[in-house]
Nucleic acid binder design. Sequence first.
DNA 1: AATGGAAGTGGACTTGAGTCCGTTTTTCTG
DNA 2: CAGAAAAACGGACTCAAGTCCACTTCCATT
Lengths: 219, 219
Amino acid sequence: MSNQNNIILGKLEVAGSAASKGERCDAAANRKLILATAEKLFAQHGVENVNMAQIAQEAQVGKGTIYRRFANKADLCLALMDSQMADFQNVMLERMRKMTAENVTPLEQLDQFLDALVYFIEDHAPLLCEVQREGLLGTYDLQVPHFWLHMTTSGLLRQAIEVGELAPQLDVEYIADALLASLRANVFRFQRQVRGFSLERISAGLRTLVAGLRFSEVE
Amino acid sequence: MSNQNNIILGKLEVAGSAASKGERCDAAANRKLILATAEKLFAQHGVENVNMAQIAQEAQVGKGTIYRRFANKADLCLALMDSQMADFQNVMLERMRKMTAENVTPLEQLDQFLDALVYFIEDHAPLLCEVQREGLLGTYDLQVPHFWLHMTTSGLLRQAIEVGELAPQLDVEYIADALLASLRANVFRFQRQVRGFSLERISAGLRTLVAGLRFSEVE
DNA sequence: AATGGAAGTGGACTTGAGTCCGTTTTTCTG
DNA sequence: CAGAAAAACGGACTCAAGTCCACTTCCATT
C-alpha cells in the first residue's frame, strides 16, 4: 500500500505527494525512475502489454523494488495519473466555486462536472481500466478516486435538493453510484469501442438521466 | 470457445443445450462431471477460492480437459448459470407477454423487469462477478447475457416511446447501457457489501432513474 | 471386427502477478 | 567517523491461469 491518501476538506491528497514524506532519497529516486520507465513502456506498447518484470528490467531495478513502492500494477497506474487527477480536481473545484458565485444551479453544475469527467475518462481510459480492474471491493487506496467522484456527485445532488431542484426524498447515495457506474472504465470503453458512441453522446445521455430527476412529479 | 450461443427471436440459446450437439459421449460425461465438481467446490469454498487445478484434481481429470470444454473460468461459471438464466429469460418473456396482454405499459414492464433482475443478480453475484471479470470487451460468448439484457431493456424503452411514455428523441441505446451498468456484478456487490444497500433500495433507485425519463419536458 | 482419423485427454509447460528473504545501502547516533 | 538499526534492494520463488502436444479413446466405415 504505497499511497497513503487522505481526504482533506473534500479534496484529495494524492499519492505522488506522499513520495516526499519520510522516504529515503535513493528510494525516491527509484520511484521516479520506475514511474518514468513505466510511462515510457506504457506509451510504447500499451498498458495491457507491459508487465512488471519488463518495467523492472528496463528500469534496471529488481521486481521487489517496484512492489516496495507500489502495491500492484493498478497502484502504479494510479500513481501515473496522480498529478493529472489532482489537476482535474482542482480545476473542477475551482470551476464549481465560480459557478456557485454566479448562481449557476447545482444541477447545472453537475451537468458540467459529468461532462468534464467524460472527457477526463476518455483521456485516461487505459490506465483507469487497470486501476479499476479489481472492481470496487479491492484495496481501499485504489478506491480513493471513486470516493471523491461519489462525494462530489452526491454533494451536488444534495445541494440540488436544498435549492428545490430535486425532490427531497431522492436517494442521493444510490443515484450518485448509479450515475458513476456508467462511467466505469470498462463500460466506457465498451461504449466507445463496441457501440461507437461519441463523447458528446455519452455526456448527453448521462445528462438526460440527471435531467429526469428534476423535481416535477413527487409520485 | 465452448458456448456457441445463438440469439433466436430475442431468446437465448444457452450453452448447456449446445452440449448435446455432436459431442462425444465420454466428453459429455466429463462436461457434466466437471460442472458438478465445480458447483460443489464453489459452494464449499466460494468461487474466488477455487482454482482450475483443484477442480481438475477433484474431478479426476486433466486440466486440459476442462479447458477443452470451457474457454476459461468465466465460461465455466457462465455454464453453471445456464439453466437458471434460461429460466429467468423464459419467465420474464412470459410475464411481459402477459403484461402486454393486460395493457400494462412498457415502462411499467421495464420496472418489473429491472426489479426481477436485481433479485436475479443477488442470487448469482459471485458467479456473475467471475463472468464479468474481463469487462465488456472480452470474448463474445461471455457477453451474450449482457446483449440479451440490453436488447430487452432497449426494446421496452422503444415500445415506451411508441406508446408516448417517453420522448421520441431519447437515446435508447445509451440509456439501456447506462441503466444496466449500475447492475454490473462488481458495482452491485459494492453497493450491497460496502454501501449496505438493500435489494429494495437498489431496485427503487434504479426505477427512479427510469421514472425520470417519462415524457414531460421535451427540453 | 478391424481400422483410421477425429475427438478427447492429461499433465508438463509458459506466462505474469505478487511474495519472501538474505544482502546492501542509507542514515542516524555517539 | 564508526557502528548499528532501519530502509531499500534484487531476484528466486510461489501460485494460478491458460496453452501445448504426444498419447488415448471412440465410433463410423468397411
